[in-house]
């Protein structure tokens, strides 16, 4: 499929401070990152390292204290339809069916016929055909998250932001969903930014893995993952990268001996 030239997402020296009671907490400090169009970037970090805050600033749900985020040339200050967002909880509207929830992602001005077609298309994309009349409470966690992904993709966003989208799912479902996201990314070629605390997930999906450290949240390292997809989680190269990233988190821990069976 021929796609037009997309825009890079530029995160430029972001600072974010929160005031908690009388204290000022530095959540992000000097965070800079460029996501090329169509790139898949994983951000890993311990909880509280500001990775979700970073994503929420990119989504336009929070404002940075200093620095800016640009999509192409345009600075981002508010939420916009060119950026889709998938939250950790599916956040579906419980009073709407699967169909209406996906349609909720649509622009208001979309004509009905086109809207129907788009919903059909996205139902198929996330593998939920036949469930359009179900209500969210009738779905499993994984299926709810599929609906949420379909909804986020309805406007063909240039960037899809995924905030620990599989954090609440069981290990089996999580792996299935990772494969699904990979498949969707390969068909849609959307720039994706995934925040996660699961190192394996980050390596399995990302072109690059951004490792963040806590308080203040800074980018510690960016690890490229030059492996062909689909990736084998137990392959030697995969394990090497995992080890490298582990080392970033648990520096003080004595490095284990080389992986050997």
């Amino acid at each position: 499929m021929q796609t037009e030239e997309g825009k890079s997402l530029v995160i430029d020296r972001l600072d974010k401070q929160f005031s908690v009671a009388s204290d000022v907490v530095q959540a992000l400090s000097e965070v800079s990152l460029v996501a090329r169009p169509g790139e898949f970037i994983s951000i890993v970090g311990a909880s509280g390292c500001g990775k979700s805050t970073l994503l929420r600033i990119v989504a336009g749900l929070e404002t940075a204290t200093a620095g800016e985020v640009r999509l192409g040339e345009r600075p981002i200050r508010n939420p916009g339809l060119e950026r889709g967002m998938v939250f950790q909880e599916a956040r579906l509207l419980p009073w709407m069916t699967v169909w209406d929830n996906i349609a909720f992602g649509c622009r208001a001005e979309t004509p009905n016929a086109e809207r129907r077609e788009l919903v059909e298309q996205h139902l198929e994309l996330v593998g939920l055909k036949g469930f359009e009349k179900a209500y969210p409470h009738q779905l499993s966690g994984g299926m709810q998250q599929r609906v949420s992904i379909a909804r986020a993709l309805m406007n063909r966003p240039e960037v899809l932001l995924l905030d620990e989208p599989f954090g609440a799912l069981d290990a089996m479902t999580r792996i299935t969903m990772q494969q699904e996201v990979l498949r969707i990314w390969e068909t849609e070629r959307t720039t994706m930014i995934l925040v996660t605390h699961d190192i394996d997930e980050a390596i399995y999906l990302g072109d690059r893995v951004v490792v963040m450290s806590s308080r203040p949240g800074t980018i510690r390292r960016v690890v490229p993952v030059p492996l062909p997809r689909p990736r084998d989680r137990s392959a030697y190269e995969f394990v090497q990268i995992r080890k490298e990233i582990y080392a970033e988190f648990f520096e003080d821990v004595q490095r284990p001996f080389a992986y050997a069976i």
């Binding site: 989504a59 749900l61 939420p79 916009g80 339809l81 889709g84 967002m85 939250f87 909880e89 956040r91 509207l93 709407m96 909720f104 992602g105 208001a108």
Partner: peptide, 19 residues
């Protein structure tokens, strides 16, 4: 959290109220 979803999708005040 759902209000935030409506914000992300830039829904109008009327949609926010009725939907």
């Amino acid at each position: 959290k759902i209000l935030e979803v409506a914000k992300v999708f830039q829904k109008s005040r009327a949609t926010l109220l009725f939907k």
